[in-house]
Amino acid sequence: MIEKLDIEATPRTPAVAFDFANHHLKISGESYPEDVTEFYGPVFIALDNYLKKIGKNKCRFDFELIYLNSSSAKAIMMVMDKLEDAAKNGATVEVYWYYDHEDDTMQELGEEFGEDLESAKFHLEKMAG
């Protein structure tokens, strides 16, 4: 069993909560790290290791992002690609994109990300509150 990945949020980086045992993965908060590869590198490794063994299992990925810089957006697109590939290979992948109801940018970004997903199921949801 792959160990959980829990990274606490900082003012510049999001919280990462990958509960692999329950197939529930989540990234939330703001993302504009000084070095995007340094932050997302370990996240990609953990995700790749999990998706390699996912098989036909069901997995849910929640994005609750408030602000993204361009480099982080590219990293998120890479996460989406990985999820899409896993879905193509038979896993049931559900992607939830939560956006602040007053934030058009994050809503539109979610919509565009959703358009790229063919095998993974995409849900666009307003954040609670």
Partner: peptide, 8 residues
């Protein structure tokens, strides 16, 4: 991707 990142 390019258009998206530019817009963002």
């Amino acid at each position: 991707t390019t258009r998206r990142l530019m817009r963002l």
